[in-house]
């Protein structure tokens, strides 16, 4: 007879199922990426996943731990990294990026659950710094076989020679950018799936997108007519362009590197939004989503401590009565 402490039943949630759900939620974004940037994108995605899984298995083997690639967390890291890369990067970028994400960012700090920043974004930041040119060589969507490099719509903010994309193009994804961030529509489908499955709550994405919207609205009101577009257009432009949708629904919501307490999650989302907009408007890079999330990742433990929920009945202690 088995003797064990209560509870004696458990929900059927599991780490693998959660990872699988996030991967499923990313499928629309992958399809959009392949549709707009061609089948070459698939190679990048495959390379990232293969490298991530390979590195995970290798480091677990060499450190004599159980090989846990079946939990799909390495697959997800690889996939997220791929979606944060330009479509036609040289083969060594996915390979080294995923290796950095898994070996340095994740496993060096203790593996699953112990990393202090998002591995995929850590890998991306590493690539941005190491190969800045390759990392910003974006393709014209539907460019056919002869890939034509172009700038992203966000670059138009700081460089007036770039043509501004229409809101419709931004929404459906007919714009230059990273594989996964091109179509806000596809990302919203995935985000809705995660919300319905209760994998994520609306707190982080809501606070993040809300802050970006409010910030964009304020800048538009502060300098009316500066960009030649209405307030609504400016707000939509900031929400739909770049990686903010991908970041808000899939990167900032990473369990390990975001706070657990409800109020802390909202503050975390607001922080991501503010840093993103500061980098976009005044920073050296055209896009600030990755760095803003990485920046806020560092604050997650502190936010959890600062916004701890009051324990039930902790109105006054018994001694005080």
């Amino acid at each position: 007879m088995i003797l064990s402490g209560s509870p004696h039943i458990r929900s059927n949630a599991s780490v693998t199922k959660i990872m699988l759900d996030v991967i499923i939620a990313l499928v629309p974004a992958c399809i959009a990426g392949v549709y707009f940037f061609g089948p070459g994108t698939l190679t990048t995605i495959a390379l990232c996943i293969a490298s991530a899984v390979g590195c995970e298995a290798a480091i677990q083997y060499f450190t004599k731990r159980d090989i846990a690639i079946k939990d799909l967390s390495a697959v997800l890291t690889g996939l997220l990294l791929a979606l944060n890369l330009p479509p036609n990067v040289p083969w060594y970028l996915p390979v080294f990026g995923a290796a950095f994400a898994i070996i340095i960012v994740k496993q060096c700090f203790g593996g699953l659950g112990h990393n202090f920043m998002n591995p995929a974004l850590g890998g991306r930041a590493f690539l941005m710094i190491s190969w800045p040119v390759a990392m910003t060589a974006f393709l014209v969507p539907n460019g056919g076989i002869d890939a034509i490099s172009t700038a992203t719509p966000l670059a138009a903010l700081t460089n007036s020679s770039v043509e501004v994309a229409t809101i419709g193009d931004l929404f459906f994804g007919n714009v230059a950018g990273c594989i996964g961030e091109t179509s806000a529509f596809a990302l919203l489908i995935g985000g809705a799936y995660l919300l319905i499955k209760r994998i994520i709550s609306f707190r982080i994405p809501g606070a993040y997108l809300g802050t970006v919207a409010v910030f964009a609205c304020l800048t538009a009101l502060a300098a009316p007519g500066a960009t030649g577009s209405s307030v609504l257009e400016t707000v939509l432009f900031h929400l739909l362009s770049g990686g903010v949708m991908l970041g808000a629904f899939f990167m900032a919501t990473d369990y390990v590197t975001s706070p657990m307490n409800r109020n802390a999650q909202i503050v975390f989302g607001v922080g991501c939004g503010v840093v993103t907009m500061v980098i976009r408007l005044w920073g050296g890079y055209p896009e600030g989503v990755s760095f803003s999330i990485l920046f806020m990742n560092l604050f997650a433990p502190l936010l959890d401590r600062a916004f701890k929920r009051k324990v039930f009945g902790e109105v006054r202690s018994v001694e005080e009565q």
Binding site: V15, A68, D71, G110, G113, H114, S258, M260, K308, K310
Partner: peptide, 19 residues
Amino acid sequence: QSNCIKCGRCVDGCPIFLN
């Protein structure tokens, strides 16, 4: 058993609001 992934389900489920 695997590592804690800090999903926060236990935090949300705790009726005493503990972590």
